[in-house]
C-alpha cells in the first residue's frame, strides 16, 4: 500500500494559498452549518442515517428491537395443554457460565395413559437477571425450546430482589411500563 498521505503534507502553491485563506476552517464550518440548517426544516425520522437528526426519542417512540434480540428470559408453555415445556433436565443451568439458573425438581410418578412412569417434574425455576449476560447459551442448550430470551429489554427494577425471577414471572412475563406522551 502506498503510504498514507493527506493534503496537509502537500506543499503546492494552491495548498499554501488555501491555508492562507483559512479554507480548512471554513470547510468545517460549512459542514456543521449545513447540518444545523437541515435540522431546521427536514422531517424528523429517528434512526434514519440520511436525515439531519438521528435521535430516536426512545420512551416516546417505541424502540426498534430486532427479532433475534436477547432480552428478558421466558419459560414457554405448551400452547395446547398450557403445561410447561420444561422437563427439568438442568441442561440450561449447566450451560450457563455464570450460574444464574436454578432448576428445582422432584421425581414423581406420572400417569401416562396406562403406564405409570417415574419422571422428573419441574417445581421451581429461578433466573437471576442481575448476573445474566444474555449470551443465549442456556437457551441453545435447552432441548425442548422451553427457555427463551425474548425481545423485552426494560429490566430495571427498584430493588435487588426484583432481579430474581421465579417460575411464575418467567412464565407470564413481566408487566412493562408503557410510556405515552
Amino acid at each position: 500500500m502506498p503510504r498514507v498521505k493527506s493534503t496537509a503534507d502537500r506543499r503546492t502553491l494552491g495548498e499554501v494559498i488555501k491555508r492562507l485563506l483559512l479554507f480548512d476552517l471554513f470547510k468545517g464550518l460549512f459542514l456543521t452549518f449545513s447540518y444545523n440548517w437541515r435540522a431546521l426544516y427536514e422531517k424528523r425520522d429517528g434512526g434514519n442515517p440520511n436525515q439531519a437528526i438521528y435521535t430516536e426519542q426512545y420512551p416516546l417512540e417505541a424502540a426498534r428491537v430486532s427479532e433475534r434480540f436477547r432480552g428478558a428470559p421466558r419459560l414457554n408453555l405448551d400452547p395446547e395443554s398450557g403445561q410447561t415445556l420444561c422437563i427439568a433436565c438442568d441442561l440450561c443451568a449447566l450451560a450457563c457460565p455464570v450460574d444464574c439458573i436454578e432448576v428445582g425438581s422432584i421425581r414423581r410418578e406420572v400417569r401416562e395413559g396406562e403406564k405409570v412412569n417415574k419422571k422428573k417434574v419441574l417445581t421451581t425455576f429461578i433466573f437471576d437477571t442481575s448476573r445474566c449476560m444474555f449470551c443465549n447459551l442456556c437457551s441453545e442448550a435447552c432441548p425442548t425450546d422451553c427457555l427463551e430470551l425474548t425481545q423485552s429489554f426494560e429490566l430495571a427494577v427498584y430493588h435487588r430482589s426484583g432481579f430474581r425471577w421465579d417460575r411464575e414471572m418467567l412464565e407470564k412475563g413481566i408487566d412493562y411500563v408503557r410510556y405515552s406522551k
Binding site: T32, F33, Y35, A39, R44, A52, Y54, T55, Q57
Partner: peptide, 13 residues
Amino acid sequence: KVSAFMQARLGPM
C-alpha cells in the same frame, strides 16, 4: 440546541 442540531441530535426535549 445549536450544538445538538449541528451534531444530528435533538437536544433538550
